[in-house]
Nucleic acid binder design. Structure first.
Length: 244
DNA sequence: GATTCCAGACGTCAGATGTA
DNA sequence: TACATCTGACGTCTGGAATC
């Protein structure tokens, strides 16, 4: 909240840091929501498990579903599908193509040594129009819009020259000058922030699902409890006939 | 219509936890 | 054990409801 800004500045700041550390020490950490919910689901029938990846409700195209564990799948304005796999590999498929044949594998330079023949792209920081761009050799960019609930990706020609801090990588592992090292550090930071951003979204989604699961479990247990109480009363009536 | 309040979503950081 | 992932905490933003 905006009203809490004053609480954290100036003299209160150091105390706040100490309090924060104390609070962290006091709070015992729980296992992940996924783990808790999966344990719950093994105890109680009808409790859905949290899957590793999003299910078919996301509208995953059939030709993408056969790919190796993508972490995110997006549809472009032209109908193409972009799958960002773990490790940073980007795959693009045309809706008309069949299966993996239509996939164009792109590998980000930070994802280790690229496979032979892979196209190298360079992750770029936000551009002036509030988008994130993945530059692809061949005068095209994959643009991520920064607004809306779901990030949207488009393949288009770059609207501007390369933003500051972005270098078209001819080959990985050739950074020497301090400027290049700084750019590499910035790029790594941007990538880490982007990953963490997605992780936070996913974590919040799991947390909501976890809370829903707990709420439904409470409802079930309340019904069970009520039935047991009624059963107990019935048994009491049977076993203790009135003596007057 | 302007202002305030509030809930929800988000991005970031730091540290705990998972895993190869 | 190093690295990746997850999540609590915090500050910020935004849209809708309530109040003036």
């Amino acid at each position: 909240m905006v009203a809490t800004i004053a609480e954290t500045d100036e003299s209160a700041e150091s105390e706040g840091v100490i309090d924060s550390h104390k609070r962290r020490e006091i709070l015992s950490r729980r296992p992940s929501y996924r783990k808790i919910l999966n344990e719950l689901s093994s105890d109680v029938h009808g409790v859905p498990k949290i899957e590793e990846e999003k299910s078919e409700e996301e509208g995953t195209p059939p030709n993408i579903a056969t790919m190796a564990v993508p972490t995110s799948i997006y549809q472009t304005s032209t109908g193409q599908y972009i799958a960002i796999a773990q490790g940073g590999a980007i795959q693009i498929s045309n809706p008309g193509s069949d299966g993996v044949q239509g996939l164009q594998a792109l590998t980000m330079t930070n994802s280790g040594a690229p496979p032979p023949g892979a196209t190298i792209v360079q992750y770029a920081a936000q551009s002036a129009d509030g988008t994130q761009q993945f530059f692809v050799p061949g005068s095209q960019v994959v643009v991520q819009a920064a607004t809306g609930d779901m990030p949207t990706y488009q393949i288009r020609a770059p609207t501007t020259a390369l933003p500051q801090g972005v270098v078209m990588a001819a080959s990985p592992g050739s950074l020497h000058s301090p400027q290049q090292l700084a750019e590499e550090a910035t790029r790594k930071r941007e990538l880490r922030l982007m990953k963490n951003r997605e992780a936070a979204k996913e974590c919040r989604r799991r947390k909501k699902e976890y809370v829903k699961c707990l709420e439904s479990r409470v409802a079930v247990l309340e019904v069970q409890n009520k039935k047991l109480i009624e059963e107990l009363e019935t048994l009491k009536d049977i076993c203790s006939p009135k003596t007057d």
